Amino acid sequence: MNRALQVVRIQTFTAQNGLTWPWVILATAFVINVALFSVIGDDIPGGPKTGALASIYLTAAAVGAVLVHQHLPFMLGFGVTRRTFFTATTVLTAAWSLGSGVVLYLLALIERATDGWGIRMSFFDLPFLARDNPPLQIIEYAVTLLALVFCGFTLGAIILRFGATGFWIFTVAAIVALGAAAILITWQRWWGALIGFFADQPTAVLLTVWPVAIAAVAAAGSWLIIRRVTP
């Protein structure tokens, strides 16, 4: 564990720019949205709503890919084992995701207190989040970030292990699998039951349990690939 913590410290130093970029992208999206809706004024009933918060989540997936693709060979060159690298990187990204969740929650509080930054804009304080339960709202932010980082882990590991060709083969295979599933569901007329299954679940479950499940599957997949990566 001491070795893993040493790797965490090294990762924090070498990955700080990568871990900063999601916030840079989010800040840019926020400024653009404030400027845009300030110009539009009060012409939008109920106030402007934007999905630009998704920018930090999409960038988080890219950060996950970079952490594996660029940092794993570097660490292996220093004699760090794959298990230690995976453990350290998991700890680092879990801490980053939780810290980001706290910051997003604080920004949501400011948004609420300022009546949407003075223009009634919903950017951080989204209505479907657990707004009356601060710990749960933080978790909702954090676990989705963690799930996307681990999805990025998997993509980065695939590229590192199999190269660009392997990545494109994986992409085509994923599209074929999803297409086949859509055809089967349509043929069996399961769409109504499938939509009803998710619609009947509490929003908190959709935003916590399912992201955790996705993160676990992606983490397991990335670990299986990382185990066979050579420097």
Rank of each mutant, 00 (worst) to 15 (best):
R3C: 00
R3H: 06
R3W: 00
A4L: 01
Q6Y: 11
V7T: 13
V7Y: 05
V8L: 10
F13K: 15
P22E: 01
L26Q: 11
V31E: 07
V34W: 12
F37R: 08
S38P: 10
I44N: 09
T50L: 12
A52F: 13
T59N: 11
V66M: 12
V68A: 08
L72N: 03
F74R: 08
F74L: 12
G77W: 02
F78H: 13
G79E: 09
R83M: 08
F85S: 03
T87N: 05
A88P: 04
A94F: 07
S97M: 05
G101M: 03
L107T: 08
I119F: 07
R120G: 04
R120M: 00
M121A: 05
S122R: 12
S122M: 09
F123R: 06
F124S: 08
F128I: 11
R131P: 00
I139C: 12
E140Y: 09
A142P: 00
T144G: 10
L148P: 11
L148N: 08
F150M: 14
C151S: 10
L155H: 03
I158L: 12
L160A: 13
F162C: 06
A164M: 08
A164T: 05
T165K: 15
G166R: 10
F170N: 13
F170V: 13
A174T: 14
I175K: 05
A177Y: 06
W187D: 05
R189T: 05
L194S: 10
P202D: 05
T203Y: 03
L206H: 02
L207E: 03
P211E: 01
P211Q: 03
V212F: 14
A215K: 08
S222C: 07
L224F: 04
L224H: 07
R227Q: 14
V229M: 02
T230A: 14
T230I: 15
P231T: 13
